[in-house]
Design a protein around this nucleic acid. Structure first.
Lengths: 201, 201
DNA sequence: CCTGCAGTCTGACATTTGTCACGGGCGGGG
DNA sequence: CCCCGCCCGTGACAAATGTCAGACTGCAGG
C-alpha cells in the first residue's frame, strides 16, 4: 500500500485528486494539506511514502517544500504537479530531490502511474515540460536583476522599487534596462511577464 | 440519474473531478470537453442535465459557453467553477443564465451538492465570491477605456495600442490616464492588473 | 430651445522611463 | 598578480508615458 500525502491550496481539486487516487487499490491518501507549512508538519508526523505537491501554495512553493522534505524526511519521495509549466522551477525541483514533475494537463491515468514509479524509486518528468525547460535554457539574469525585476512585476514605479530594494533609482534603471535587453522585451513590464513565464523570477 | 457534462482544459483536473462525481450514485459524467467549442458540440449532441464549466477555457470562456448553451440547449442547466474569483464574471454569468458559481477552494463535497441543487432548478453562488462581487461593485470604466486598458494589458507601448484600437496615441494616453485614476493605480500596468482582478476587462 | 452631462477625441506640456558611457569596489580563477 | 564578471552608483540624453485644458458629439430634462 502506497501512503500518499497531498498538498494543493484548492480544496476542490485536492479532494478530486484524492478521490482519483483512492480508486487505485494499491494506494491511499493519508493526509491532505492546503499550505506548505501544513504539508511539512503532516509529513514529519506521518512519514508518507510519496508527497504529491502543487507548485503554487499560499506560503512556501512546492519546490521549497520538497527540498525541505528531502532533507528532513528522506524516506518520503516527492513529486510536483503544476498548472503552468515554468522551466526554471523544473530545474530547481530536480536539484532539490524531486523525483516526479508533471503538468495538470496530463491524462488522469498518468498520475497514479507516476506515483507508483516515484514510489519504486524511479523518476518521471513530463516530456513536454522537459522540452520547454531545455529550450528555455538557464536564466541569464543575475541575482540582482531578478530581484529588481520581481519588484517591478506588479507595476510599481522606479522610486518604489528603489526604496524596496534599498538601491539608488539610477541603479534600478540600469538593472531593469539590462533585464529588458536580456529578455528581448520592449519594456520592463513585458520583461517581467517573460521572465515569470520562464520561471526566472 | 443526473447526466453531467464536464469542461476543463486541464486533463488531470477534469479526470479527477469526474472521479469525484462518479462516486455519487445519483450522477454520471456523460461527456468531458477540453475546450469551449468541444463542450458546445457535445452538449448539442447529448443534451446533458447539467454542464459544469471551468471559467477559463482555451477558446471561449466558460460564461460565453454557458450563455450559448442557455439559448441552444435550454434543458441543460449550467454552472461555473473557477480558480480565481473575478467579480465581473460572476455578474456576467448570472445574467447569462448560469445557475451555479463556485470557487475551486470549496470543499469537495460541496460540488456534488451544488450539482444536485442546480439540477433541481435551484441556484447556488459561493458566498465569498458573492460578497466580493458586491463589494467590488460595477465597473467604473467606459467601453473605450476598458478596450484600451485590455490592449495595454500585456505591456504593449502606446503606439501599438493606438494602431490596434485605431485611435490617436494622444487619445490612448488620455483613456489610460482616466483608467488609472478610476482604478486608483499608479500607472497603466497596475491599472490593468487591478481591472483584471476585478473582472472589469 | 438650451443647459448640463457623459463619452469621445486631440494637442501641448511635465514627468518618468530607457539607454548609454563611465567609475569604483569586491571576489574568484587563470 | 591580473583579469573578468558582478555589484552599485552618477550623469546626461532621448523616448515613452502621465496629465491637463479644451473641443466636439449625442442625449435627457427643464
Amino acid at each position: 500500500m502506497i501512503r500518499v500525502l497531498l498538498a494543493d491550496d484548492e480544496h476542490l481539486i485536492r479532494g478530486a485528486i484524492a478521490a482519483l487516487l483512492s480508486l487505485e487499490d494499491d494506494m491511499e491518501v493519508v493526509a491532505q494539506a492546503a499550505t506548505g507549512a501544513e504539508a511539512l508538519s503532516l509529513a514529519r508526523a506521518l512519514h508518507p511514502d510519496v508527497a504529491v505537491l502543487d507548485l503554487q501554495l499560499p506560503d512556501l512553493d512546492g519546490v521549497t517544500v520538497a527540498t525541505t522534505l528531502h532533507a528532513e524526511v528522506p524516506t518520503c519521495r516527492t513529486m510536483i504537479v503544476t498548472s503552468h509549466g515554468l522551466p526554471g522551477h523544473l530545474k530547481r525541483a530536480l536539484t532539490g530531490g524531486v523525483r516526479g514533475f508533471l503538468a495538470k494537463t496530463v491524462a488522469a491515468e498518468v498520475l497514479a502511474t507516476v506515483v507508483r514509479t516515484v514510489h519504486a524509486g524511479g523518476r518521471y518528468v513530463d516530456p513536454q515540460l522537459a522540452a520547454e525547460a531545455i529550450s528555455a535554457g538557464d536564466s541569464p539574469l543575475t541575482a540582482r536583476e531578478a530581484d529588481v525585476l520581481r519588484l517591478a512585476g506588479d507595476g510599481a514605479p522606479v522610486d518604489e522599487i528603489a526604496r524596496r530594494a534599498a538601491l539608488s533609482p539610477g541603479t534600478v534603471r540600469n538593472y531593469l534596462s539590462s533585464a529588458v535587453t536580456k529578455t528581448g522585451a520592449a519594456n520592463r513590464h513585458e520583461a517581467a511577464r517573460i521572465a515569470r513565464g520562464r520561471g526566472w523570477i
